[in-house]
């Protein structure tokens, strides 16, 4: 608002009216809001409607949620997703921050540019395509890393995708496809830390480790929280990895693995869209609650 006033006041005599600086921003946001409504808000409301109604469109309270919870695939799916989240979030936070700090230390040298590019490449592949790459990597017969798989004692695809290995495998796939983008984001955030603070730390005798631990990581906190919120929401919706793996292994691994797959199965195999919607609503609520917790506890929106 104040920006608009100044610009109008500041340019009364020029022939061309200076454009209102807020306009471009609103334009960008408007396009986004449109998509958000079409593919975010409307489907969410529609899912909420489904979740609380029965097949004959009558209000059914929580019965769809009860149906989902009673299903024999429900608790195992919750367990699978929870375990996956532990591996995925831990590896993401630790390795992304560590790699970003490492990149930043190297920034003076040309290696950093090359590495940043390298980290980012997998993220440039579309989600499903990058999972397909892994299906080859994990088959000892065709994998370029087959020596590694054989060294670990796995001779067939079936042994590699044994049920106990799945959380680790999905974490590997997700990290490989998703972490590169976050490393670049963290690197950008590190560049935003004023140089004089780092300089002051160095003068006070802080080494690389102390600078990272006492200056850089605390200043990265908001970015880490931001990453965790999005990664958590993404992680609870695990779908592509197990679904493609189920197809590739003709169902040996990954079928009915995650909650999202269960929702999909309810909708399209058991012809029960209402229960499917109930599971989606649960995922939405979990995502929102965890986001709210993180935001509140971390002071995410506090001004500096």
């Amino acid at each position: 608002m104040s920006a608009a006033t100044t610009s109008r006041a500041g340019a009364p005599r020029t022939a061309r009216r200076a454009p209102w600086p807020g306009r471009a921003g609103h334009g960008f946001v408007a396009a986004y809001v449109l998509l958000l409504i079409a593919f975010g808000v409307v489907p969410t409301v529609y899912a909420l409607y489904f979740a609380f109604t029965s097949v004959d469109n009558r209000f059914s309270g929580l019965s769809n949620f009860a149906t989902a919870a009673r299903d024999f695939r429900y608790l195992p799916a919750v367990g699978h997703v929870a375990l996956y989240l532990v591996f995925w979030l831990a590896s993401l936070v630790v390795f992304v921050v560590a790699l970003a700090l490492l990149l930043h230390r190297l920034s003076a040298r040309g290696v950093s540019k090359a590495l940043r590019f390298l980290y980012y490449i997998p993220g440039a592949l579309a989600g499903a395509a990058s999972v397909m790459v892994w299906l080859f990597l994990l088959d000892p017969t065709v994998s370029p890393a087959s020596f590694l798989l054989r060294a670990l004692g796995y001779d067939t695809f079936g042994q590699v995708v044994a049920p106990g290995h799945l959380p680790i495998l999905f974490t590997l796939i997700a990290f490989w496809t998703g972490a590169g983008g976050w490393i670049v984001v963290m690197f950008g955030a590190l560049n935003n830390i004023p140089h004089d603070i780092i300089e002051a730390a160095r003068i006070d005798g802080a080494g690389a480790w102390q600078t990272a631990r006492r200056i850089q990581i605390p200043l990265l906190r908001k970015w880490i929280v931001y990453m965790t919120i999005l990664a958590f929401a993404g992680g609870t919706q695990l779908f592509v990895e197990p679904q493609l793996l189920a197809q590739a292994s003709v169902g040996v691994a990954g079928r009915d693995y995650s909650l999202n797959q269960l929702s999909y199965d309810f909708a399209f195999q058991n012809n029960d869209v209402n229960t499917a919607a109930a599971i989606s609503v649960e995922l939405l609520v979990i995502g929102l609650v965890v986001a709210a917790l993180f935001v509140a506890r971390s002071g995410f929106f506090d001004a500096d």
Binding site: V41, T44, Q237, F239, Q243
Partner: peptide, 24 residues
């Protein structure tokens, strides 16, 4: 379908809503 569901979008709400894309 999955790519959207598993998507790496901007908002938690959008992400969660992706799972009901079929319903959209």
């Amino acid at each position: 379908v999955g790519a959207v569901a598993r998507g790496r979008g901007r908002r938690a709400g959008v992400l969660a809503a992706g799972s009901v894309l079929a319903l959209a």
